[in-house]
């Protein structure tokens, strides 16, 4: 076996604009070095799946991109605009980035329709009737139009996650981040959410997904990134990383995940 020091896989700019450029990202939680010199470049309309064992820092990476966590070293640039450490730049960037959470995080005191129209009305100053039209169309797209007047507490997990997708889409983002969107769902509901995500992928959205659903990766991902111990180990097209990995760590992980 060839013991090599890891060289950080270097991405080169190909077609289209660079949607996200992460360079030399380092993050510490107190003393713990959780992200070590991570660099990643995402093109427009590219679909990236990040996978890895727990504790590898993949959720942290996504949350840093959206400024939910602060990074100490390195730079994150979104469509050319650099993400500063203060909060003002975050609001400019969040206009273009939408995020989905593992625990859906719908607002329980509003109906599903109100959940979707809240952002457009208060942040984009769209008149209410227009926001309702757009949101109803989005809810139809994810297949929940008939439940628009219900409250989040009255629907199932899969339906909640789909509404969460509609809510993010209502803000017309250019990039969508998914933080383990199906981990909290029953197996029957995972399919309905993945269908919506696949539909979204085919419509040309730039997506970064942290997930364990390898079939999804094989079906739509342009690139799969494997992370472990806070750094990127391997990256490449799904056939290569999932079928023919180069590093032993990747292979070990895939054995565990594919045997379930």
């Amino acid at each position: 076996m060839d013991i090599k020091s890891n060289t950080i896989p270097h991405e080169d700019d190909t077609s289209g604009r660079t949607a996200i450029a992460v360079k030399g990202l380092n993050k510490w939680y107190d003393e713990f070095h959780v992200l070590k010199d991570v660099s990643l470049s995402v093109q427009e309309k590219e679909i990236i799946v990040i996978c890895g064992p727990s504790g590898s820092g993949k959720s942290t990476l996504i949350r840093c991109i959206n400024h939910l966590e602060e990074h100490q070293e390195g730079s994150i640039t979104i469509f050319g605009e650099r993400l500063e450490k203060n909060k003002k730049s975050a609001t400019i960037i969040r206009d273009k980035v939408g995020m989905l959470f593992q625990s859906f995080n719908l607002f329980p005191h509003l109906t599903l329709l109100e959940n979707c129209t809240l952002g457009p009305i208060w942040l984009r100053n769209i008149p209410e009737y227009q926001a309702i039209e757009q949101s109803t169309a989005l809810l139809e797209r994810v297949g929940i139009a008939n439940l628009a007047q219900k409250y989040p507490g009255q629907i199932s997990g899969g339906q909640q996650q789909r509404v969460a997708i509609a809510r993010s889409l209502a803000m017309e983002p250019k990039i969508m981040l998914f933080d383990e969107p199906t981990s909290a769902l029953d197996p029957e509901m995972i399919k309905e959410v993945l269908d919506v995500m696949i539909d979204l992928a085919h419509s040309g959205m730039t997506m970064i997904c942290v997930t364990h659903e390898m079939q999804f990766a094989q079906q739509v991902a342009d690139r799969v990134v494997f992370m472990a111990e806070g750094e990127i180990v391997e990256t490449g097209p799904p056939e290569q990383v999932l079928g023919n990995p180069k590093w032993d760590r990747t292979s070990l992980f895939l054995e565990h995940i594919l045997s379930h």
């Binding site: 076996m1 510490w28 107190d30 003393e31 070095h33 100490q72 806070g230 032993d248 760590r249």
Partner: peptide, 20 residues
């Protein structure tokens, strides 16, 4: 399998600004 590269994690270093 025999051609797999062995992954050695990079060393951690202490943060530049003290947060702990």
């Amino acid at each position: 399998k025999s051609e797999l590269l062995k992954f050695v994690p990079s060393p951690s270093r202490p943060p530049v600004t003290i947060t702990y």
